[in-house]
């Protein structure tokens, strides 16, 4: 119980530090939001109208008082209003969360599924041709940025075969290409960890005992070794899921996927700071939550950690 409380206190402290960093970094970033907003139509605004808008947005107040106002708002769930279209930021982000979750969820299913599949296969038959190919492909995919993978998938599957849409969220299949792009990026990380873990577990006495008992290779790997390797994999999966949330920014822009990441990119371009701040803070919060959740799962899966 005290451990849980300490964990909560730690998390809160992390979030407070995050809020300061988020606010400072976004507010001190170069570029004047008032000017960027007025210039969206492509016309350079006048100094007078920039000054008026700065006053309206409260950008002329001292940094610390802006931070306090913002933090008090955030604690009430009010992230302010978008500089660009004056819509409430919280509602704007909430409306886009489902799309991002659908994308990140599908992507992590793909990442975890592929990683488990390939690593189990590699553990069973390390010398087999498909294991070797999988190894090379994994390294290759890990080395190519998701943007390039996405472009390749678009030109082959969407433009060449016309099997799936190039982007947008107009049909049920539309999630596949962005999710595969995002998922492949996660697979590489996850796969390397899982394979190493499985290999390490394979040397442990209980695995040898299982083999000696006459258990089939499949059963040994799938039931015993995989479970022993699970804690490391779950931690890794948590990190990967957090990575996916971040990676969604690029993939959502490329595939015109109406998620939080796309919103953030547009907001960064326009210096729409309230949205950027909310995005950074909420992504950080999600990451902290996912990692905490992963820790909990590990303690369930691995009795040794429970103490």
């Amino acid at each position: 119980m005290t451990r849980a409380l300490r964990r909560v206190a730690e998390t809160l402290l992390v979030l407070l530090v995050l809020s300061v960093l988020t606010f400072l970094l976004t507010s001190l970033a170069p570029g004047d939001p008032a000017e960027e907003i007025l210039r969206r139509g492509g016309v350079q605004p006048t100094a007078e109208s920039v000054a008026v808008l700065r006053g309206e947005l409260g950008l002329d107040r001292p940094l610390f008082s802006r931070y306090l106002r913002w933090l008090l708002g955030v604690l009430r769930g009010d992230f302010g209003r978008s500089y660009a279209d004056r819509a409430p930021v919280a509602a704007e982000i909430l409306s886009r969360v489902p799309a991002t979750l659908r994308l990140a969820g599908t992507a992590s299913l793909i990442a975890v599924g592929l990683a488990v599949l390939v690593s189990v296969r590699a553990a069973l038959r390390p010398r087999a041709l498909d294991s070797r190919i999988a190894r090379v492909v994994t390294v290759a995919v890990a080395a190519v940025p998701p943007y390039i993978v996405g472009i390749l998938l678009i030109s082959v599957v969407a433009v060449g075969m016309r099997a799936l849409p190039t982007g947008g969220d107009g049909s049920p299949g539309a999630v596949i290409l962005p999710a595969v792009t995002l998922g492949l990026a996660g697979t590489a990380t996850l796969l390397r960890l899982l394979r190493a873990d499985l290999a390490a577990v394979a040397r442990l006495p209980f695995v040898k005992l299982a083999v000696a008992k006459g258990l089939s290779a499949r059963r040994t790997v799938m039931v015993h070794a995989l479970r022993a390797a699970a804690p490391g994999a779950i931690t890794a999966a948590g990190v990967v899921l957090a990575e996916l949330l971040a990676g969604a920014v690029i993939v959502e822009t490329l595939f015109a996927w109406p998620g939080v990441g796309q919103l953030a990119v547009t907001a960064i371009r326009q210096r729409d700071i309230p949205i950027v701040q909310a995005y950074v803070l909420l992504t950080a919060l999600a990451t902290v939550l996912v990692l905490t959740l992963a820790d909990l799962c590990v303690s369930v899966a691995d009795p040794r950690v429970r103490r």
Binding site: L117, V120, L124, R127, A199, A202, S216, M222
Partner: peptide
């Protein structure tokens, strides 16, 4: 150790990975 010690023991039929 990176080779699974029991991989040679797989019997015939469809391989699980495949």
């Amino acid at each position: 150790g990176t080779r699974f010690p029991i991989s040679a023991g797989t019997r015939g039929g469809v391989r699980p990975g495949a």
